[in-house]
């Protein structure tokens, strides 16, 4: 097994979460390697076609064992940018009460943070990626935060029909904040309104990692290794510190990529699961969760880790029954060994 040259930080996955970490680390002068399961997409890969656009969506080359496979859908992705390379760019924010649904409504769980804690980061991402919207109109629902960097997108006739109808009933509406340029932004053009967001935007209108975090990370010499299939997180002798990963490279050769920036293994795994889908990292998380030295130490913890962000975003709204169901499903999977399917190329 090849031992790669040690870097400061190794990041699994070049999706939105991995891209943000990479950008942050490279800005701090760290040497970073990103191991991405899929291709490193180029502009010309974003073909304007419903059919050809499927190539940038989830590539089912692996699966978890067990009868309750988490599955995937049309909105999953692979390759640089992950699912954000073809997202619909809706950028809603949680409301203040979303963080306290247990206290307020007796449902779900309260978050350990509040809207006020997270609001500065919403603003920061909006400026990094480029979000169009009307913050003033949203302030009836949320405390004042920064204005969006761009005005809202044009409202077309069907949107006007909805707006007129709601206004008649006294229901306030605000334009949906979107990660799409309504005007030129950071050297990227305004949207042409031709509707190809879902198959990838090759002209930079779309606020995706390719045009923001990954672009700056590349300038800072971050290395992206496409078609790298990570199989597990390596730890030090104590088992409590993450020290790199094992993976198959684009030639299907097994290797180890050590990192200097070791971290609490549990924190590393928590970071791994932050992407919208985190399909690939689920195996690593579950694998680690089954080790005797794992700090999280039980399948319940690992099961929590396989919940995708889409579910987490709504976690504050789910009922106890739903939470129990999620855990039950996760446990059913976590109790069995991960089956790593040999990558096909």
């Amino acid at each position: 097994m090849a031992q790669r040259e040690k870097v400061d930080v190794v990041i699994v996955g070049a999706g939105p979460a991995g891209a943000i970490y990479t950008d942050q680390m490279t800005r701090e002068g760290k040497s970073v390697v990103i191991l991405e399961f899929g291709p490193d997409w180029d502009n010309n890969d974003f073909i304007s076609s419903e059919i050809w656009g499927r190539r940038i969506k989830h590539a089912p080359r692996f699966e978890l064992a067990g009868k309750n496979n988490p599955g995937h859908g049309f909105n999953a992705g692979w390759g640089t940018g992950g699912s954000m390379s073809h997202y619909y760019a809706n950028f809603p924010r949680l409301l203040q009460n979303d963080f306290k649904v247990k206290s307020l409504y007796g449902k779900g769980l309260d978050w350990p943070i509040s809207y006020e804690d997270i609001a500065p980061y919403y603003d920061r991402v909006a400026h990094d990626l480029g979000v169009s919207g009307d913050a003033e109109k949203e302030r009836r629902w949320r405390p004042v935060t920064d204005a969006y960097p761009m005005p809202p997108l044009k409202t077309f006739r069907h949107g006007e029909i909805w707006r007129e109808a709601f206004e008649k009933h006294g229901i306030p509406l605000a334009p949906m904040p979107t990660g799409i340029n309504s005007v030129e932004y950071k050297g990227r053009p305004a949207c042409l309104n031709d509707g190809w967001c879902h198959v990838g935007c090759p002209i930079g209108v779309h606020g995706t990692p390719q045009w923001s975090y990954l672009a700056t990370a590349r300038e800072q010499k971050a290395e992206i290794r496409p078609f790298s299939y990570v199989t597990r997180v390596l730890t030090d002798a104590s088992g409590a510190r993450a020290a790199g990963v094992e993976y198959y490279d684009d030639k299907k050769e097994a290797g180890r990529q050590p990192s200097r920036h070791d971290g609490d293994a549990v924190h590393v795994l928590r970071a791994l699961r932050q992407g919208p889908f985190g399909q690939r990292v689920r195996q690593c998380v579950l694998d680690y969760g089954q080790r005797p030295q794992a700090k999280c130490g039980n399948s319940r913890c690992a099961a929590r880790s396989v919940r995708c962000a889409a579910e987490r975003v709504h976690a504050a709204r789910v009922t106890r029954a739903r939470e129990a169901e999620l855990l039950r499903r996760g446990n059913a999977t976590a109790g069995k060994p991960c089956r790593v399917v040999e990558p096909e190329r």
Partner: peptide
């Protein structure tokens, strides 16, 4: 063709190769 090159709708309908 290899599954990751396939353009089938099944690919995005939770189908596995």
């Amino acid at each position: 063709v290899p599954p990751h090159e396939a353009l089938l709708g099944l690919r995005i309908a939770n189908g596995n190769p």
